[in-house]
């Protein structure tokens, strides 16, 4: 997972995306606002959609209440780590 770890914490990429969609925005706008390649935005938003942190209306994306809450939480020391093997 690029944006969310196994305990549901989000990483910097997710924060960038969520910060860019406090208002409805297209993926292209998010890429532009966050200075991130479009392919990473598409992949990250897909993950955030699956986690219920983002919702889609037509071609626009908006952070959900859970997305806002996740974005407001303090940064973890262990952002996107997988469980230890």
């Amino acid at each position: 997972m690029a944006c969310i770890n196994s305990t549901g914490e989000i990483n910097d990429m997710a924060r960038k995306i969520l910060a860019a969609i406090t208002q409805p925005a297209s993926l292209e706008q998010v890429a532009l606002l966050s200075g991130t390649p479009l392919y990473r935005i598409r992949s990250g938003v897909r993950e955030l959609l699956q986690a219920g942190l983002v919702e889609q209306k037509d071609q626009l994306y908006l952070a959900t209440a859970a997305g806002f809450a996740a974005h407001s939480k303090p940064v973890s020391n262990n952002p996107a780590a997988s469980p230890a093997k």
Binding site: M1, A2, C3, L38, Y39, R40, R42, S43, E47
Partner: peptide, 11 residues
Amino acid sequence: HGTLRLEDFQG
């Protein structure tokens, strides 16, 4: 860079 699909690169 995480999970990617070829379609993520469309355009």
